[in-house]
């Protein structure tokens, strides 16, 4: 009896092939209905498959033979450094080595994190997102399939170094791109009529025409002297303070104990913040050329006595001290929006 599988000629009466073990007779008692997968197992198996694929470095490339293309070849130490340097832009090193498909989803996630960090800049969430983005950036930089040289503490060291490099790079890029144009500052004054509360983070633009400054505008200024500084006898400069313009050059400003008047007409207290330290004070002045009369929330600490002359000095600032004009409520998120002119 000839075996169908190996063509071996067997002795009559055998059930299985003497050479290969295949069945020789057609009458075999065997269950021919295959087992089936329960429907609920499908998603679990998909997850397991996904994990196995990722663990293997993606799509079974973990054992790429050395004869494959240059892009899959083993990297030497100097090359790892070069690629890490290229990875200052996340994924750029991989693009150069044509391995971007291995990190594309990480780069995508990094972009999302960076976007969220920018959106939440100034808040704790924003810093958290920046940290996560820098961490992911470091991971992308050392994410290579043939990184046998980068194991254990060496890998950790490179990742930490890349984390620091990424964080510094973000700061430098942010400074170069944004700091010359915008200023973020927390406001100590509240303007109810414009939906601004003390502690809000406001966004100001550096570039503006000084002629556009009007009473009611919020400015970011460097205050040349503070009452508390004067009380201790020395100049004290506080940078990036949010103040409100009450009067510009040539305007007559009067202080009436708890409100301002501008050129004879009383200003709405809801639209023009009145600082606590000016409470009960009565004075009047004509704003000189090149200066602005501002409402600023000075921190008067202790029992400091000062007269109207010092109070006027505190309210009149030079136009050159103005750093930016506020145009947006940045934080909190719930009240983010542009300020009406």
């Amino acid at each position: 009896m000839q075996c169908r599988q190996c063509k071996f000629e067997n002795m009559p009466g055998l059930d299985r092939c003497f050479q290969c073990g295949a069945v020789l007779k057609d009458e075999v008692a065997v269950d021919v209905h295959p087992p089936r997968m329960p429907g609920w197992q499908a998603p679990l198996r998909n997850v397991g498959r996904w994990v196995r694929t990722r663990r293997a470095g993606g799509a079974g490339r973990e054992q790429a033979p050395e004869t494959e293309a240059r892009t899959d070849a083993y990297m030497e130490g100097a090359e790892i450094v070069l690629v890490a340097v290229l990875s200052i832009v996340p994924g750029f090193g991989h693009i150069v080595r044509r391995q971007f498909d291995r990190v594309w989803w990480q780069v995508l996630l990094w972009m999302v994190l960076a976007g969220m960090a920018i959106y939440a800049y100034g808040s704790a969430y924003g810093y958290l997102m920046f940290g996560l983005a820098a961490g992911l950036h470091a991971r992308i930089a050392v994410h290579w399939p043939d990184e046998e040289e980068l194991r254990g503490f060496k890998r950790l060291g490179v990742m930490i170094a890349m984390f620091i490099v990424a964080a510094v790079a973000y700061r430098v890029v942010f400074h170069a791109v944004v700091d010359g144009r915008l200023i973020w500052a927390r406001t100590p004054i509240a303007v109810e009529g414009r939906n601004i509360q003390a502690g809000d983070m406001l966004l100001a633009r550096r570039r503006f025409d000084p002629q556009d400054v009007r009473p009611g505008n919020l400015l970011v200024v460097d205050l040349p002297r503070l009452l508390v500084g004067q009380a201790h006898g020395g100049p004290f400069v506080q940078t990036g303070v949010v103040v409100q313009v009450i009067g510009t050059a040539g305007d007559t400003v009067e202080v009436h104990g708890n409100s301002f008047s501008l050129n004879g007409s009383e200003l709405d207290i809801a639209q023009y913040a009145y600082p606590a330290w000016l409470q009960g004070r009565e004075m009047s002045t004509v704003v000189p050329m090149g200066r602005l009369f501002i409402s600023a929330e000075y921190q008067v600490r202790g029992n400091v006595e000062f007269d109207n002359r010092i109070a006027l000095q505190a309210c009149l600032i030079d136009e050159s001290n103005v750093k930016g004009i506020v145009f947006m409520r940045w934080l909190p998120f719930s009240r983010r929006g542009y300020l009406a002119e």
């Binding site: 007779k25 057609d26 008692a29 021919v32 089936r36 997968m37």
Partner: peptide
Amino acid sequence: LEVRATFLEGWSGQVRMLIELGEYAE
């Protein structure tokens, strides 16, 4: 295979259909 249990194409066909159905372990 119910007709003839030693029909090789039947067995290999079953395995291929299980693969098509995504039931790899089976």
